[in-house]
Amino acid sequence: MYFRDVLDESDEILHVKYQLIYTVGAQQQVHTGAKRCRNYHRKDKQIILSFILKPNSSIDDLNNNFSDHQIQLFLILRGLLLSDVLFIALKKRHRVNYGINSNHHFKRLMAVPFRAKDVASDRTEFGHPDVALILTHLSYYSSVLNDQQLLKCFHRLSEEKDPTLIYDQWISYDEKDQISSSIQEWKSVNLRHNQQRIHFLFPTFRNNMLVINYFLNNFVFPREAK
């Protein structure tokens, strides 16, 4: 015996502004997964922006400069703009319409719907994956990382093949002359040094967008963006 669901007015009820979830099959990572966050050189950014913002631009303009995987990322961003996903997400208010549930019994780290200021809706989540990803980014950019989350990032960084390269990128995000000389180089960082962590390391990187992206890509999206 076979069963089939029929959705009346599906173009309306499946719109991204509604949080309905229709699951089929096993959980999978969203398309391109955690690699949605990436940094590009200035020249490349101009080419990317031209492709995304010009309606008549062609994929052929990118093939000689970017891989197929990168082009998929650009197409996703183009879709976010053309389908009003980004517009709908940006209309929501942090800690009023969405945010991170701070209840320690709630195990998810991604943004969830809020029903009032600082009041998360119980056992709910955003049904559209791209809306959830955008609002999760905005939540962490607004609320920054706590000490425990930062410590996770630095422990993971110490396990990377080239932690110095990644750390230099983090440092370059801010004005170097405003950063204590004691932490300007990765080799000078001592995670066991309590005073260095509290007074220099954590205050410097708490709201660093690259560090926040690193946390999301390593500890949030691989587990929850499905």
Rank of each mutant, 00 (worst) to 15 (best):
Y214A: 02
I179M: 04
R93W: 00
N208D: 03
D162A: 04
T23N: 15
Y214M: 01
N39L: 11
V119D: 15
R206Y: 01
Q148Y: 08
D44V: 01
D168M: 13
I198T: 14
A132F: 10
D177T: 11
Y140F: 12
Y22F: 09
S181C: 05
N218T: 00
P222E: 12
S180L: 01
H199E: 10
K45T: 09
D168C: 08
D68S: 12
K54M: 11
D174F: 14
Y214P: 00
L90N: 11
N208A: 01
A26C: 01
S158Y: 08
L86M: 06
V131K: 06
L53S: 06
R78W: 08
H155R: 14
N65L: 05
G127H: 09
L49W: 08
H104N: 10
T164I: 13
V144M: 09
N208T: 02
Y214D: 08
G25Q: 07
N217M: 11
L81M: 05
M209N: 06
S139D: 10
F221I: 06
F66G: 01
G33K: 02
H15F: 09
L138Q: 12
V131P: 03
L133W: 11
D84S: 15
V30Y: 08
M110Q: 12
E224S: 06
N207L: 02
N103C: 04
I13Y: 15
R108Y: 15
Q28I: 06
E175S: 10
D5N: 13
L138A: 11
K152Q: 14
N63K: 15
V119H: 15
I212C: 07
T124H: 13
Y98E: 05
N190M: 01
N64I: 04
R223E: 15
H104Y: 12
N65V: 06
H155V: 05
T136E: 09
N39T: 09
I76W: 09
F106S: 09
L80V: 10
F87T: 11
D130V: 07
H155P: 00
E159N: 12
T124L: 12
S182T: 08
I100G: 07
Q196G: 04
V131H: 03
H69M: 07
Q195V: 10
R156I: 00
N208R: 02
D11Y: 03
M110K: 07
L90T: 11
S121F: 03
D118T: 05
D11K: 06
L133C: 01
F114W: 03
H94A: 07
N207R: 03
Y18P: 00
D61S: 15
L133V: 07
N63W: 05
N208Y: 06
H137Y: 15
N194S: 11
N194H: 13
L77N: 13
D61F: 08
D174L: 11
V112R: 02
S57H: 05
L14A: 01
H193G: 01
Q178E: 12
R223Q: 12
K187M: 05
K117L: 05
H104K: 13
K161M: 05
D122N: 13
V119C: 14
K92Q: 14
I212R: 01
S180A: 07
F51S: 03
L109S: 14
K187Q: 10
S121I: 03
D130I: 08
R123A: 14
L81K: 02
P129A: 08
S181Q: 13
Y2S: 10
V6Q: 15
Q149D: 01
V211L: 08
H105T: 11
L49I: 05
V112K: 00
S10G: 07
F219Y: 12
S58V: 07
A111T: 04
S50H: 14
D122H: 13
